[in-house]
Amino acid sequence: MTRSSTDSTDATGPPDTPSAASAELSGPAEAPATAGSPAPAAAFDALYAHCATALFHQTFLLTGNRGLARESVARAFALAWERWPEVAMDRDPVGWVRAAAYEYAVSPWHRLRRAHRRPDPPPDGPASRALLDALLALPPAHRRTLVLHDGLGLDLPDTAAETEATTPATANRLLNARAAIAERMPEPAEHDAPAGRSAPLGELLGTLALTPAPGTLPAPGRVRTDSEHRAGRWTRTTFWFAAALVGLTLFTLVTAPTRHETPQSPARRISGVPPRAGPWKPGPQDVLLEKKLRGELVQGTARLVPGTG
């Protein structure tokens, strides 16, 4: 999983001071401090308390659906617990979980789920409604780029790394996303440079993200338990599938014939076929003619003279 190599909360943007809404959207400014080397469960719970709520607000901007946003956060942390040694040793655990949550939130498979086909009712306020409609009309890659760059304040290289794209492609996505937003909301999408953060748009993104309340996010202990149960189910399913495959293979080896024998067709009478031809047998007239010719043998040319009787 590719994501930003630097902490999302320490990303340096333009010299403008971020607004309160943007700062809350990005989450706490520093990673949770832990004394010594805490137990994995305690470290996971600290990471969950540190950024779960901020991730909910961010994924709401990507989906427009509160239920899907909560599910994306829970799935991302469940995946992080399954791969906790990798996440714990990562330079940016928050970025790791954020990338997993974003990838789950923008997955096209959610369109097949009836509960997530439509976004939630639009928020109050014409500006928020217009911005949410414009965001959901963007392609997922453009939407994700805009949220990371203008919403969270990541610089262009970090945004490109987290979205698994080149820096020029990320800049083009950002420009196209801002242009699409500007068609509906000209003022917030104004910016000075393609690589610079649009402060008005970031302010509106932060305000829109904070519109829905996160509700009751699952407790970190529940997330860890669900992750372990899911991993156990997958392990058991894989084991039984492998056992069934081995059993079917052994049954095939035991019951399969060792050589192929062509089956004999059943005998039946065939009509309309001419009788088999054999050697020629002379008839009575042929026998008499042969005897006559043998008894009338002559010498010389007299044999060539035709008879008169």
Results as ranks from 00 to 15, higher is better:
70 R>T: 15
71 E>W: 04
109 W>A: 13
77 F>I: 05
78 A>L: 04
86 E>M: 07
111 R>K: 03
118 R>P: 00
118 R>H: 08
77 F>V: 05
93 P>N: 14
97 V>C: 09
97 V>T: 12
65 N>A: 07
101 A>Q: 10
70 R>N: 11
103 E>F: 06
111 R>M: 07
113 R>N: 10
94 V>Q: 12
86 E>C: 04
118 R>F: 03
118 R>S: 09
93 P>I: 14
104 Y>F: 14
117 R>Y: 01
115 A>R: 14
117 R>F: 02
91 R>F: 01
91 R>W: 01
85 P>A: 10
116 H>A: 08
89 M>T: 15
89 M>C: 01
108 P>G: 11
89 M>P: 00
100 A>W: 03
96 W>V: 10
102 Y>F: 12
104 Y>N: 01
98 R>N: 07
96 W>C: 05
98 R>L: 13
90 D>Q: 00
115 A>E: 14
67 G>N: 09
114 R>D: 05
92 D>C: 10
98 R>K: 03
75 R>H: 03
101 A>G: 07
105 A>L: 14
114 R>E: 14
82 E>A: 15
67 G>Q: 14
74 A>I: 00
76 A>G: 12
85 P>H: 10
66 R>K: 06
85 P>R: 02
72 S>G: 04
108 P>V: 13
104 Y>R: 08
101 A>P: 05
83 R>I: 02
98 R>H: 08
68 L>F: 11
109 W>G: 09
89 M>Q: 12
76 A>R: 01
109 W>S: 13
80 A>I: 08
102 Y>S: 11
65 N>V: 10
65 N>C: 10
65 N>F: 04
109 W>T: 15
70 R>E: 14
94 V>K: 00
102 Y>N: 13
86 E>S: 12
66 R>Y: 04
105 A>S: 14
96 W>K: 02
102 Y>G: 09
109 W>V: 10
87 V>P: 02
99 A>T: 15
107 S>E: 09
107 S>G: 11
95 G>L: 04
95 G>I: 13
84 W>H: 08
97 V>G: 02
69 A>N: 05
110 H>W: 15
73 V>K: 02
82 E>G: 15
72 S>R: 00
91 R>I: 07
103 E>L: 13
113 R>H: 11
82 E>L: 13
103 E>I: 07
69 A>L: 06
70 R>M: 06
115 A>H: 09
113 R>K: 01
101 A>D: 14
70 R>Y: 06
107 S>W: 01
75 R>Q: 06
89 M>I: 05
97 V>S: 11
80 A>H: 07
74 A>R: 01
93 P>H: 09
68 L>P: 09
86 E>G: 05
105 A>F: 06
101 A>Y: 10
99 A>F: 04
81 W>F: 08
73 V>Q: 05
95 G>S: 10
73 V>I: 13
102 Y>K: 00
92 D>G: 11
105 A>G: 08
86 E>W: 07
76 A>L: 10
83 R>D: 15
82 E>D: 15
77 F>K: 01
108 P>M: 08
78 A>T: 04
97 V>W: 01
90 D>K: 03
83 R>Q: 12
84 W>V: 12
103 E>Y: 03
97 V>D: 07
89 M>G: 12
87 V>Q: 06
116 H>D: 06
117 R>V: 05
95 G>P: 00
71 E>L: 11
93 P>A: 12
112 L>C: 06
114 R>H: 02
